[in-house]
């Protein structure tokens, strides 16, 4: 996508979004609602969709039944393309991540994020840099020094290709002036096992993807890509919890923040009152104790972006990713 057109479309979307927020004529679903998870069963996106489903059912946020379907084919493209084809249908709610706008940039998929109507971003998943437990590096600077000495010899694993994990890897390369060999796997969990087996040297998994491995003493985080330390919580290992992991900035790698939003969409061409209904529903879902519990369990950061805020966030993220994608020669349009 050309940046100018992207921004123009975004601006249009933003105006639509701002119309959507005030309470217009109330709309209520009169048919079962389908939650489309753009990931296979068991993944982070699927977990979110199913958590929201159970909250809605338990707290009766609508009297219509909610069904979760998985459309994770093509790294999520299946679900988004499905949403695009159902323009005007307010009974399909699509759950995804930032790949809604990143994927069309780097591969020839049949949708753009502007084919969908944004509802909200509900949570931000954090990233950490992990190495094998018995690796000799104490801090991220130790590690990057070793990487710099042998350009291309160190193997960074991650989920999928040209997706958030690889974007972050390239960002690290640029910031620290090093060179990794990036090996894409199907999921973060797979990368974690490969690290435990010593087949790769590091990965940038989310907290929930490597929690069990950290506890089990197969790998440990060097630093977190957050602006401040992760919140205090229960200890993960005998002596450490998430709060004890230094931020990357404080240990010398200047990447202040890298997050992956969990996003919710409707198909295109829905009415503002339909959007308003779902925005309100997501907001109500976030106010429940079950949601708090979910956020804690998955070590994500709670957020609620809708309307113009969400648009602004997207524009910024698109700009940043676009820059990296252009440098790497990933852009397809």
């Amino acid at each position: 996508m050309r940046l100018a057109t992207g921004i123009a479309i975004l601006a249009l979307g933003a105006t639509l979004g701002s119309i959507a927020t005030p309470a217009l004529a109330e709309w209520h679903p009169t048919k079962p609602i389908e939650f489309v998870a753009t990931a296979g069963p068991g993944g982070g996106t699927d977990n979110l969709a199913r958590t929201i489903q159970s909250i809605i059912t338990k707290h009766k946020l609508t009297d219509q039944p909610v069904i979760v379907v998985n459309k994770g084919g093509g790294s999520g493209a299946e679900g988004y393309t499905y949403g695009k084809a159902l323009a005007g249908d307010p009974y399909k709610v699509i759950f995804g991540t930032s790949n809604a706008w990143q994927q069309p940039m780097v591969s020839k998929v049949a949708f753009k994020h502007t084919d969908l109507t944004p509802i909200a971003a509900l949570a931000q998943d954090e990233f950490l840099l992990w190495v094998k437990q018995d690796a000799p590096y104490k801090t991220v600077t130790d590690y990057l020094k070793a990487v710099a000495a042998k350009p291309g010899d160190f193997k960074m694993g991650g989920a999928q290709s040209k997706d958030t994990d690889e974007v972050l890897t390239r960002l690290i390369e640029k910031t620290a002036n090093v060179k990794f060999t990036y090996i894409p796997f199907k999921s973060g969990a797979e990368a974690a096992v490969q690290l435990a087996g010593g087949h790769i040297d590091s990965h940038v998994n989310n907290p929930s993807e490597s929690l069990g491995q950290w506890r089990g003493g197969t790998q440990r985080p060097l630093c977190a890509f957050t602006s401040e330390r992760l919140p205090k919580g229960p200890l993960i290992t005998a002596t450490e919890g998430w709060h004890d992991v230094p931020t990357c900035v404080e240990s010398g790698l200047n990447i202040p923040r890298f997050q992956q939003p969990r996003t919710v969409w409707l198909p295109g061409k829905v009415t503002p009152d339909q959007v308003a209904f779902y925005v309100a529903m997501m907001k109500k879902a976030q106010a429940t104790p079950e949601w708090k519990e979910y956020i804690e369990r998955t070590s994500q950061t709670e957020t609620f972006l809708a309307g113009p805020d969400f648009e602004k966030f997207m524009t910024e993220d698109i700009e940043r990713v676009h820059k990296i994608a252009a440098e790497q020669g990933w852009l397809v349009n």
């Binding site: 296979g40 068991g42 977990n47 958590t51 969990a189 797979e190 096992v193 369990r297």
Partner: peptide, 28 residues
């Protein structure tokens, strides 16, 4: 023991494990 589901079913079950507050992995 490793937290990698071998099949779609195992993946859903693993999601369940996490919701029940258990972390699949070496410590389980």
């Amino acid at each position: 023991s490793l937290g990698i589901p071998g099949s779609a079913t195992a993946a859903v079950m693993m999601g369940g494990l996490m919701i029940w507050g258990l972390n699949p992995g070496p410590m389980l």
